[in-house]
């Protein structure tokens, strides 16, 4: 283990996660109005109709796979009697299908973004950079799965990447584990860390707006006219009667 390992697998992850958390807090405080993914369906919907659900449902399953693969220790699956081969086959098959859907969806979306005039002109530099990092992360990840399926994978990621990932959250980082992992996994992890670092500053913030509350709230929302008129908060001592405690 050398200084570079510590830099890549201890410093970078913590910096990235700190930016991720603080960045989201700051963005939400500062830019609620910009908190959206700026849908381009108004311009074009034929390609979007295929690309967007493929990508989004694909990546949701990929997320579930990561929660299982990174979050659940090997000892737990062994304890419930799931064999190494069984787990591996399951992970590779579902991962490959979900990853493939994601990739196809992403390809359609990027093709659409480049070729449909209004969509392309609505694409900012920020978006383009985010697309590069996101695509790289997905490609590295999918290639790991495919190589794993072909038996090319050197070390089991559940002995290296997963414990390292968990160790970060235990605040007892174990960078030496990552040093053993395959180069594909390391590239995937690094690009993911970069993605997390830029996440709060891109359209990806819309992930945290998943409107699950819609399932339970009443249909019609009633709101009282804002107690505060204008852009300035009411000065102290000038609150309306009964307004301060509502």
């Amino acid at each position: 283990m050398n200084a570079l390992d510590i830099l890549l697998w201890v410093v970078v992850p913590y910096v990235s996660l700190a930016i991720f958390v603080v960045g989201h807090y700051w963005r939400y405080k500062y830019d609620k109005f910009g908190w959206t993914t700026r849908s381009s369906q108004l311009y074009e919907s034929r390609l979007l109709r295929w690309g967007s659900p493929l990508f989004h449902f694909g990546i949701l399953f990929v997320l579930l796979g990561h929660v299982a693969g990174l979050g659940i220790p090997k000892s737990w699956t062994n304890a419930v009697g799931l064999s190494e081969e069984g787990y591996h086959a399951m992970a590779v098959v579902t991962g490959a299908i979900a990853g493939f859907c994601t990739l196809v969806g992403l390809a359609i979306l990027i093709y659409r973004r480049r070729t449909v005039g209004p969509v392309f002109s609505a694409t900012t530099r920020n978006d383009k950079f985010m697309y590069v990092v996101l695509t790289a992360t997905i490609l590295f990840g999918l290639s790991n799965t495919v190589l794993g399926a072909l038996g090319q994978e050197g070390v089991d990621y559940r002995d290296t990447v997963s414990p390292w990932f968990r160790s970060i959250f235990y605040l007892q980082p174990r960078p030496e584990l990552m040093a053993e992992a395959g180069v594909g996994f390391r590239l995937h992890a690094l690009s993911a860390l970069l993605l997390f670092a830029i996440w709060p500053f891109t359209r990806l913030v819309h992930v945290f707006s998943a409107p699950l509350g819609y399932l339970t709230r009443p249909y019609i929302v009633y709101r009282s006219r804002d107690a505060q008129l204008g852009t300035r908060p009411v000065p102290r001592g000038w609150e309306r009667v009964g307004g301060g405690r509502r």
């Binding site: 409107p211 819609y214 249909y219 019609i220 929302v221 009633y222 709101r223 006219r225």
Partner: peptide, 14 residues
């Protein structure tokens, strides 16, 4: 308002 997933569309009480 009933379709809005975010609950952003509202009817003013007053």
């Amino acid at each position: 308002a009933a379709s809005c997933p975010s609950g952003a569309i509202y009817k003013r009480e007053e």
